[in-house]
């Protein structure tokens, strides 16, 4: 596990106000393949800003960023979209499932913008749904699922594109503590299998389960605990 999946060099993000907000101050950060990092900090400290930059959902106002071996500074929006779709899997606090589509259809959205044929996407989706234990709910609509099940669908979708890194912004924010425990256990077992995970949370108990911890305060990121074996 020596090749870095994520390399930030002096990456900063300032929202041009007025007044300008230094949401992320110049930051150096490396995430190795196989890492499981928790990003912890109070509300408004810049955790989502950092994660959006890591996921190419937003562009830094300074510094350089290499994702999955690819420098991103000079990429066009279309190239950024391509890299994002192939290299990053997202898990959001609010799940972001399409309410009118079945579980299978939702998961099969992964790879849609990677020119994957539908048959391949459906096959991968079924495989991922099986991994998160939702095969019995394959044809269900998201509205009929519990919160924990919905997040598992979202995780299956994030994995279905076979990304280099999983970025999770408060994945347990809408779940009770028992469901949250389940999700973190899922992450732990996935990480043990080799997945690289970056998880934003403000729940100390969950953060303790990660192998590495990054604290964010007022846009400053610092390594609170280096990766443990």
């Amino acid at each position: 596990m020596t090749d870095p999946v994520i390399e930030l060099r002096q990456v900063a993000r300032t929202y041009p106000g007025p007044p300008p907000v230094h949401a992320l101050r110049p930051t150096d950060l490396t995430i190795q393949a196989g890492d499981f990092a928790a990003v912890v900090g109070p509300s408004g400290s810049g955790k989502s800003t950092l994660l959006n930059l890591l996921g190419l959902l937003d562009r830094p106002t300074g510094g350089s960023y290499i994702l999955d071996g690819q420098p991103t500074e000079r990429l066009s929006p279309a190239q950024l979209a391509g890299l994002r779709g192939r290299s990053v899997g997202f898990v959001f606090q609010s799940f972001h499932l399409l309410n009118h589509r079945t579980v299978l259809d939702n998961v099969a959205l992964a790879g849609l913008y990677d020119h994957r044929p539908r048959s391949e996407r459906l096959a991968r989706a079924a495989e991922m749904i099986d991994l998160v234990g939702l095969t019995p709910r394959l044809g269900a609509l998201p509205a009929t699922l519990s919160g924990g099940e919905r997040q598992r669908v979202a995780i299956a979708r994030a994995l279905a594109s076979r990304p280099a890194v999983l970025l999770c912004d408060e994945p347990t924010g809408n779940l009770d503590s028992a469901r949250s425990q389940e999700i973190v256990e899922l992450f732990e077992s996935m990480n043990q299998a080799g997945f690289t995970i970056v998880m934003v949370t403000h729940d100390e108990a969950l953060a303790a389960r990660a192998r590495r911890r990054l604290d964010v305060l007022d846009g400053q990121v610092h390594e609170a605990r280096a990766a443990r074996p």
Partner: peptide
């Protein structure tokens, strides 16, 4: 090989 920077495409 890394994912590369090819623009995304959809059928």
């Amino acid at each position: 090989q890394p994912a590369g920077a090819a623009p995304s495409r959809v059928r």
